[in-house]
Design a binder for these strands. Structure first.
Lengths: 256, 256
DNA sequence: ACATCGCGTTCGACATTGTCGAACGGTGCT
DNA sequence: AGCACCGTTCGACAATGTCGAACGCGATGT
């Protein structure tokens, strides 16, 4: 590779995409090949790959190619927090009502998890609004479930120090990664007094189409209300959090 | 290549794009690499290539990567004919007024060049509206200049027969391709009674960002008014057509 | 019906091409 | 100053993508 940053097949693939984007109609394989001055077989490999990953469609009857509409998801960017909040508010409200606990919704931010929505615990006790606060990635149910379902967040762990907040805070990187693996398998995360003593929560991932986590929703409250005496989270809470998260994810997927 | 349609580097590049699209913030190279479980150096090659082709941007100060806004041009599709017409009407009018001849604007269509706009010759003679008509690719100034600047059109020549309309129609493929090469160099095309005897025209390409032809604009009329006695097109006409085409292209580029 | 043409697709050998471990140089912590 | 981390470059290796040629199929024309 003489000059770095010149991977041939990628440049060719992008050229194909650009050509298809500019074409007013579906293009035949041969037309693509000749436009790019590439052999037919080579072009076929590229186009077939693009079709395989869903960026290009092939008309069943004419065998011609066009851009798949899914390519419009690309510029979508990182999901507007306001959109996420508006789409999840109703689910958060009913989750709080059904569990009788407070609910948080968070998204990844440079320094941790940013709380973009907070439904107070319906018991009416005085509470402080957590909206806009940043919670630690390694010591909150929200953070840990994001860690499990948002791969690029994991590498941020390496540099940020694992601050100890309580005696239960996980400060060992290896142990945390091990827990993240479990969370990924189970589908929800748990925090038992790791950030604030006697307070804990359960969180589940909100995903965008494709499965990548873009946010998380969490129920939290006094540990003795969230967890049973065995130490495990109460089943009706985990179930409700998980299904609320799934419902929000599906709702997001529906608006293309 | 065991399974066709699985070019590794392209799939990886698309995965990078998808990851960047889903990320709410700029991502570090390492974060991308670890998310995709690829070596850093490999990832760097892919990202550098994507940056090189303009789909990815790198923040100068943080060195982190994000999608380039240019990626939004991709789903743009093949430029709405109505948009092209509305953007070029004013130029077409003044071109007709300045040259005293009729003006056509055309776009590629499956069977030839479709006329999407027609300004009558201002001399007031009775004329038939050509809007919506299909003109042959090989025997019109509009068609030939599109041929020169829209590569995928050229391969359509191979199968369609070169119908003879007049004694001056080019029916030899090799000769036509040779002329197309000249047109590409000069920047405008000429038709001297090749479709209708005694009638001819001069056309120039309307380009989208990147240089690909998406349409063409043409002045046409009686050959003795368009061309000087030497047979060459009159200089003030070619100049005006070319600069009108360029102006429309730039105007199109301005709306992102 | 048969032959022909043009297309998309597959095959397989080759060497070009991308991959990846390791090392470099710069920047911001502590 | 020292360290730690990151983006980038280097270079050897072989896995990978490339591409000429051949296949199969449908449409066309005879």
């Amino acid at each position: 590779m003489p000059v770095p940053g010149q991977i041939q097949s990628i440049e060719r693939a992008v050229a194909v995409l650009r050509l298809l984007a500019a074409a007013p109609q579906d293009l035949a394989l041969q037309e693509i090949a000749e436009s790019l001055e590439l052999p037919k077989a080579t072009t076929h490999g590229i186009v077939a790959t693009l079709r395989h990953v869903g960026l290009v469609q092939q008309n069943r009857s004419t065998a011609r190619y066009r851009l798949d509409t899914e390519i419009q998801d690309l510029p979508g960017g990182g999901l507007d927090p306001n959109l996420l909040r508006s789409q999840s508010m109703n689910w958060a409200d009913s989750l709080a009502a059904n569990t009788g606990e407070a609910v948080l919704i968070g998204i990844p931010s440079p320094d941790g998890v940013e709380v973009i929505h907070h439904v107070f615990c319906p018991d009416g006790t005085p509470q402080r609004l957590l909206f806009g606060e940043i919670r630690p990635v390694h010591a909150s149910a929200l953070g840990k479930v994001l860690l499990a379902h948002t791969p690029w967040l994991r590498s941020r762990l390496r540099q940020s120090s694992l601050v100890r907040y309580t005696s239960r805070t996980t400060t060992d990187r290896e142990a945390l990664l091990e827990e993240v693996r479990r969370i990924k398998a189970v589908g929800y995360s748990v925090d038992v007094g790791e950030y604030v003593s006697e307070s804990g929560g359960v969180a589940a991932p909100i995903r965008r189409y494709g499965g990548l986590g873009v946010g998380a929703i969490s129920v939290f409250g006094p540990t003795d209300r969230i967890f049973s005496t065995s130490g495990a989270p109460r089943r009706e809470i985990t179930d409700r959090v998980v299904s609320a998260a799934r419902a929000i994810s599906e709702q997001l997927a529906e608006l293309h």
